[in-house]
Design a binder for these strands. Structure first.
Lengths: 101, 101
DNA sequence: TGGAAACATTGTAATATCTCTATATCGCTG
DNA sequence: CAGCGATATAGAGATATTACAATGTTTCCA
């Protein structure tokens, strides 16, 4: 442990936090969270139909959020159900919308 | 007002929220917040010395956060003091660090 | 087994971000 | 007013994101 006046957050923690926030910082991904706030679980089809975007785009963003650990997946036959994995995501969303958090 | 199954957040609100979150999603900017959490107000010099980055880099990021309305500025002679303008920023930070928000 | 539905992945071009370096502006003081 | 310290801005090159179109893969079922 060096004697640096380093921040409260460790190197790695900062990087991780930044990744998560940046991941949330996209209109479509925010809307996906919005959808997930109401429907616990959604399929890719439900998402791209609800948000009116290309299938590939929805899949990409869902995968991105899954990579970051924000969402989790569950396969059932031909469907893939996505849902919130990290509750902080919703908290953050709530926090930004209203100031009450 | 159309009859679309639009999300809870309006178009503009989503865009804005995304911008703010993306703005927070950068290691250096998170550290700046970290510094501001302890020193209500800081000058550019204090920031770039504390975080050990180029003066221009610190200035740029501070300006970016100012643009987004996250920080506010106050000029005093030759110094510019930056401080939190949008408390949600700290809340979000807190929210991501610990789950308690 | 062939095909359709549901997802994922890949390649690519456009755009946005970041860092770095250099330069410009502003305010103070000798 | 010359000069210095504190900030801001501009431009360029490197890297990262994003949307889109096309193609793969998996699963189910007739």
């Amino acid at each position: 442990m060096t004697t640096k006046t380093r921040a409260i957050l460790g190197e790695q923690a900062v990087e991780d936090t930044a990744h998560v926030l940046r991941c949330l910082g996209h209109p479509l991904r925010l809307r996906i969270l919005d959808v997930l706030e109401q429907s616990r679980e959604v399929t890719v089809t439900e998402v791209y139909e609800a948000l009116q975007v290309e299938q590939a785009v929805a899949s990409q963003h869902l995968t991105t959020m899954w990579d970051k650990g924000i969402l989790k997946r569950r396969k059932d036959g031909v469907h893939v159900y996505y849902s919130i994995a990290d509750e902080r995501a919703l908290k953050v969303l709530d926090c930004v919308r209203n100031a009450n958090c």
